[in-house]
Design a protein around this nucleic acid. Structure first.
Lengths: 249, 249
DNA sequence: TTCTTTCTTGCATGTTTGTGCCTCCTTGTG
DNA sequence: CACAAGGAGGCACAAACATGCAAGAAAGAA
């Protein structure tokens, strides 16, 4: 077995099982533990895996770190994101702010997509590295690490010069009466600005966010164009639809 | 059997079996191993296959972009970065642009550091997520995916409003006479701007970058304050020191 | 054709790489 | 602390490699 082939196997196994033990790999791949150790060391130097005593762990891109902290409801979020995919078409200018659901969405975007993405979130920008035909415009500002978005005066001013066809809003809390709200003032201000420069607005919310509120109101619910939710529930659905929102579930 | 024909067979076999072993091919195609080696070398140069020790694998995506470079030579870069650590002190405003060496440096910064980091590179910003007392200011712009930095007018203008104590320059090529140079014009412009707003400038270069030049000059060598290199070599060292640069090795 | 020029191939050479083993040091855990 | 498991660095060796060279094949040109 070739060295590269073996190292690829190790990475595959690691992705599958989330951890590997050197002594175990040695048996499974029929090479000495020394060789495995050398492989793990090389892969670690390349930043592909994270070496630890007696084995290795996944070196998930730092992107994962922040999504991990946000709670690992990834499967639901990923499903929501899938429903949003066909709202994004070639040639559009899409404004995407932070949030793990939005990140999931970006991961699912087809590599062939040709459009412009404006974002104030470094993880979102980085997730678009391999989309050759997507032009990424980053909005600067002061990095707000809790949500991994840039905020502040600079962010505000930069947005002032732009227009977007679709704003995909990272949503914390939403209530049919009070609207969308977030826990920090500066986030609210920036989101409000983003709302004002976009033709259409999309919000994706997991069930646990429906009918909850936070400290700072971004905008009333009726400013949303699309709302993507997990389950149907006719009552809730009509509650939002009566405000002119297209509810997708 | 003609050479072309044989090489085509090799590619076909590779596509079929996902890997080839030189010694094996030698028998199957009834030519010496040297010939096979030469074939593999040629095909690799053309980017058609990926040469590895003792055989070859199918070629991945052809580009050598940021993610590829991120994997290269990390040990050396990491060593360079270590030498830079004590130039960064609490309270400073540090401007850090892109590059894998700079990323290595950021990874090594102590979590207790209290300072302000200005950067136009999303990966650098994200790497500082866990540094609670480091304020990160991101400079926006159009994301240049090859080096993962923001460039363009917006970047330029945002920098205009700032000042930094130390600029840690991501270095591509450096030559004692011609100075620091990079392959793209917009990168050169932004780096030049960064140079002009910083009190001190630090460049870290691996040996292979020394005494090489690229298309666009950023600044003459004597504008650097510190140069961190791998090895000593008294000749080269004095060459730079004569220009008033502190060379650290 | 015949001669010259360029390619291609196999071989001999010295070098590099990958691997296993050994010794000594480090880490984690009771 | 003690002790076992894991790791670092060096050594040895075979397989794989690069390189120069010369014999032969292929392709033109006279």
């Amino acid at each position: 077995m070739l060295k590269q082939e073996r190292q690829q196997r190790i990475v595959d196994i690691l992705n599958e099982e989330h951890k590997v033990i050197a002594s175990d790999l040695s048996k499974r791949l029929s090479v000495s533990e020394d060789t495995i150790r050398r492989d793990l060391k090389e892969l670690d130097n390349q930043g592909i895996i994270k070496r630890v005593h007696s084995g290795a762990l996944r070196a998930g891109p730092p992107v994962e770190d922040f999504s991990t902290r946000q709670g690992m409801d990834n499967e639901n979020k990923s499903n929501l994101a899938t429903k949003a995919l066909n709202l994004i078409k070639d040639g559009m200018v899409v404004l995407i702010d932070g949030g793990t659901t939005n990140l999931q969405l970006v991961h699912q975007l087809p590599l062939s997509l040709k459009c412009t993405v404006i974002t104030n979130s470094p993880p979102i920008a980085m997730a678009l590295t391999n989309h050759e035909d997507v032009e990424v415009i980053m909005i600067g500002g002061t990095l707000f690490k809790q949500s991994m978005v840039n905020l502040g005066i600079d962010t505000f001013e930069a947005l002032d010069k732009m227009r977007a066809d679709l704003y995909i809003m990272g949503t914390y809390k939403i209530d049919p009466q009070l609207g969308v709200s977030v826990p920090s003032l500066s986030e609210a201000l920036v989101k409000r600005k983003m709302t004002s420069i976009s033709t259409e607005i999309l919000a994706m919310v997991t069930d646990d966010k429906l009918d909850t509120i936070s400290n700072h109101i971004v905008c009333p619910t009726d400013q949303l164009t699309y709302l993507i939710t997990e389950r149907v529930n006719a009552d809730i659905k009509s509650l939002y639809e009566r405000q002119g929102i297209t509810v997708i579930d």
